[in-house]
Design a protein around this nucleic acid. Structure first.
Length: 851
RNA sequence: GCCGGAGUGGCGGAAUCGGCAGACGCGACGGUCUCAAACACCGUUGGGGGCAACCUCAUCCGGGUUCAAGUCCCGGCUCCGGCACCA
């Protein structure tokens, strides 16, 4: 009878034991398909909730739980609101770690990946997450990646895919990278951290730049400001003008050649005292004077070979050389010397600048270094002769052009427009816009990815694989020969193929697609994962997309989250979908760091495994603890301290629901109502608290404020717990409040609430139905209002007393009551208040006394 | 340097259409229960002062607006994230 280790007077009550409850309900939910969405059911409003799918790395750590369990609570909350919720799950199954594991351990990447997926499926179930597993997508499945290939070819037809030779970012371990995959000032690979180099390679690209302006427009979608700012900066739109300089004739050069520069400051054109070309600029070769040749060639060679590190190690000191040629300023015919310098980038604008040292920091530094003239052309009137010790770049309203010929005296922005207009008339300039974003490089020299469906024929060039020959299957067997080199490149069976166009001997493309292609449209595929006639089911996407709510990490700001917007627009333009944006609302949860405050990683050994905690406390406690830790968008270092408090809360919920009349042995006040309270007052208090909690918790679920949501449920349970064992327990008000507590807690702690709910139904003799299909409780607004309330009274802004007044008291009555309060009288010390402020509809009174 | 976010008890954090600073939880201290420990439960807990009712200081720093400022304005500092010679 008596279990060892527990108090005798508690043993008659069944204790909360998560381990015996959770697996049982998980199995039951799966058995009855509780979370499988009927996508055709239009009787309820749809709600498409998406959380970023995972790379199957092998084990769920606490970070996965941190993203997924609150998202699951959102799904459950919306179901309780009566919406048809679609909450799918899948795996981002292609990618580098599988290959690295394969090389290291001699395992096939597919076997490694699929066994990890199996593990993770099991782990995801222990979370109690309400995923619809029928919709699962695994991207390394030919049923999925064939549509990557199909989309690639359709995009090609639409002019959105092209192949070009250009400098690319190259990681010695991982091969080519998208610009977005190069991180930090020292330009490291996002995967392996190796230093990234530039190489000239012929590669496939997607024309994301076509959508640059559209991608800058976030109207109609509710995305966090930081993500919008990052994308906006990444796209980097600059407005200005292109100005056409010409080369001046000289001994070695006939002159008259166009030299276009881009500038955001056409107003400073009269201040251009030299010109700088990128070392890679195509005209450098022909413009260089014979006597400068040696030095110029050396500089160009050096710039090509210099790593970014070397460039930066000079502490941004400007370097460059004059090429012995001059350019003619189209506005005034002035001849200025031409330099090359590596601070001018070949890939941005026109790869050439007009240098205006008076009004640009970099040009100022260069001019100072090389003793070049600095001519001020913008100034507040009267200050134009003041010497400059740095570039003058402010944009005050009263600035004017100076030393600018006929434009002198104009306001700077007006002058800029006038200069461009004048140049445009002569064909020597025009308004122009440039972007920092580059087209998306999608070729990867890797095995474990989607084969690019292209065949290279010596006669016909790069020929698309005909649609009826898709998918181009990734060969199942792979021989790495212990190196990271792409094994496809020496797989003769894969490689050799007849040209689809001329039937001659040809070779397959051996590069595979960036895995970010996979994740750029996966949410569409969830709606028809096994469709064979196309990538998406138009009727389904029309009905269900855009996604209503997306959750995931901010680390994807300029990769996945930008590519997905691009894909949606591109798919729209080829007629596949009919929307402009993929995700209506986005929420970025924070990141859980290791206990050391560093990012969790296997190599640091600070990865937190939830299994131990689940075994000790149960999944509900872990879920709730992760929500309670702090604001969801904040994240922070991992610490277990505090999880006990959350577990105690669930224990109390259990006791409230199963044993309303029980008492605690340590409580001397047990069984007694608080002093001065009768049963009626207690019941009114429970009812008020329950409905206030409902009001607040509803707002918290809507706003994803899970930490305060849990806190408020704790308060409600504390209130109920205080009445446990008293005459107020077990009555109608108690029962209503308990039911509300369970319903409000259900999205966050699905197992314990399901168990307690089933017991309630059984006790009431009702047939079982899941709490997760129950309706969210209705707020009784009248219950929220108490009969009396406490009003703080300030004298000169400091709280001196609190008076209890009837709920509907008028301001004048309130004032009268306040002035009669003993402590207020004392604080006033006989003085009459000069002002009486009744603030916030009677929430507070402030009495102002002068002197 | 530019862009974005944030600074509140010993700790995680509440409270921002200006209105009782520190909800909720952890930790700590005291207690109940126990032969004892653990568990559980009850109470106290921002600093300083006072026997006490109370007084006083306090939300990164310095100013300001206001009857009233964690919250608004001006000027700084620190930390985190992103970008980084982008003309």
């Amino acid at each position: 009878m008596t279990e060892p280790g527990f108090r005798t007077d508690r043993t008659h009550v069944e204790r909360y034991d998560a381990a015996s409850i959770e697996p049982r309900w998980q199995a039951r939910w799966a058995e009855i398909g509780l979370y499988q969405t009927d996508l055709l059911d239009e009787s309820k409003p749809k709600y498409y909730l998406l959380t970023m799918y995972d790379y199957p790395s092998g084990n769920l750590h606490i970070g996965h739980w941190y993203v997924k369990t609150p998202t699951d609570a959102i799904a459950r909350y919306h179901r309780m609101l009566g919406q048809n919720v679609f909450f799918p799950v899948g795996f981002d199954a292609y990618g580098l770690p599988a290959e690295n594991a394969a090389i290291k351990n001699g395992i096939n990447p597919r076997d490694w990946t699929m066994s990890n997926i199996e593990t993770m499926r099991r782990q995801l179930r222990t979370m109690g997450a309400s995923f619809d597993w029928d919709a699962e997508v695994v991207t390394c499945d030919p049923a999925y990646y064939r549509w990557n290939q199909w989309l690639f070819l359709e995009f090609m037809k639409a002019g959105l895919v092209y192949r070009a030779k250009a400098p690319v970012d190259w990681c010695p371990n991982d091969g080519t990278l998208a610009r977005e995959q190069v991180e930090g000032m020292d330009r490291r690979c996002w995967r392996c951290g190796a230093k990234v180099e530039k190489r000239d390679l012929e590669q496939w690209r997607m024309r994301i730049t076509k959508y640059a302006d559209e991608l800058l427009d976030f109207s109609g979608i509710a995305w966090p400001e930081p993500i919008r700012a990052m994308q906006t900066n990444w796209i980097g739109r600059s407005e200005g003008g292109e100005i056409v300089f010409t080369t001046a004739p000289s001994d070695h050069h006939a002159g008259g050649e166009e030299l276009r520069v881009f500038t955001t400051r056409p107003d400073t054109l009269f201040g251009a005292t030299f010109m700088v070309l990128a070392p890679e600029h195509p005209l450098v070769e022909s413009l260089t004077a014979p006597e400068r040749r040696l030095e110029v060639d050396a500089y160009v060679e050096n710039a090509r070979n210099a790593t970014e590190i070397e460039r930066l190690s000079t502490d941004r000191e400007k370097t460059g050389v004059a090429i012995g040629a001059e350019a003619v300023n189209p506005i005034n015919g002035e001849r200025i010397p031409i330099y090359i310098a590596d601070y001018v980038l070949a890939g941005y604008g026109t790869g050439a600048i007009m240098a205006v040292p008076a009004h640009d920091e970099r040009d100022f530094a260069f001019a100072t270094q090389f003793g070049l003239p600095i001519r001020r052309v913008v100034a507040v009137p009267g200050t134009e002769d003041a010497p400059l010790d740095s570039a003058f770049i402010s944009h005050a309203d009263d600035e004017q052009l100076v030393n600018s010929g006929p434009y002198t005296g104009l306001a700077a922005d007006e002058g800029g427009r006038a200069i461009i207009a004048a140049l445009a008339e002569r064909g020597a300039g025009e308004p122009a816009i440039t972007y920092r974003i580059r087209d998306w490089l999608v070729s990867r020299q890797r095995y474990w990815g989607t084969p690019i469906p292209i065949i290279h024929c010596e006669r016909c060039g790069a020929v698309p694989v005909p649609e009826d020959q898709l998918p181009v299957l990734l060969p199942a067997t792979v021989d790495y020969q212990g190196s990271g080199e792409n094994p496809l490149a020496r797989d003769e069976a894969f490689l050799n193929v007849a040209c689809p166009s001329c039937d001659g001997p040809a070779k397959r493309e051996t590069d595979t697609l960036d895995t970010f292609i996979d994740s750029s449209w996966y949410w569409y595929r969830y709606l028809s994962p096994s469709l064979e006639s196309g990538p998406v089911d138009g009727a389904m996407t029309d009905r269900w997309t855009p996604v209503d709510q997306y959750t995931g990490g901010a680390e994807h700001a300029v990769m996945h989250l930008l590519y997905s917007r691009f894909f949606t627009k591109a798919m729209r333009d080829i007629g596949l979908v009919h929307e402009n944006e993929p995700f209506m609302r986005l929420f970025n949860q924070g990141q859980i760091l290791g206990a050391d405050g560093e990012r969790m990683s296997k190599s640091r050994g600070n990865v937190q495994d939830p299994d131990k905690l689940v075994a000790r406390y149960g999944a509900d406690t872990v879920r709730l603890f992760l929500m309670f830790m702090g604001p969801w968008d904040q994240g922070g270092p991992w610490s277990e301290s505090g999880i006990g408090g959350v577990h105690r809360f669930l224990n109390r919920v259990w006791a409230i629901a199963t044993d309303p009349h029980g008492t605690d042995p340590g409580d001397q006040a047990a069984g007694k109502l608080p002093a001065g309270e009768d049963v009626a007052a207690a019941e009114a208090a429970m009812r008020t608290t329950a409905h206030r909690t409902l009001r607040d918790v509803t707002e918290d679920y809507e706003g994803f404020r899970f930490n305060t949501m849990v806190a408020k449920l704790m308060e409600l349970s504390n209130t109920l717990y205080r009445y446990r064992g008293t005459p107020a327990a077990g009555g109608a008000a108690w029962d209503e409040a308990t039911e509300m507590l369970l319903l409000m807690l259900a999205p966050a702690a699905p197992h314990i609430t399901e168990e307690l709910w089933s017991r309630r139904l059984a006790t009431a003799g009702e047939a079982w139905s899941s709490i997760h299909t129950a309706r969210w409780p209705e707020l009784d607004a009248s219950a929220v209002v108490e009969e009396t309330r406490e009003v703080p009274v300030q004298v000169n802004g400091k709280v001196r007393d609190r008076v209890v007044v009837p709920a509907g008291v008028s301001d004048t009555d309130l004032e009268r009551l306040v002035l009669a309060a003993p402590k207020v009288v004392a604080a006033l010390a006989g003085r009459a208040p000069d002002r009486v402020i009744v603030a916030g509809g009677g929430r507070l009174v402030n009495l102002v006394v002068r002197g």
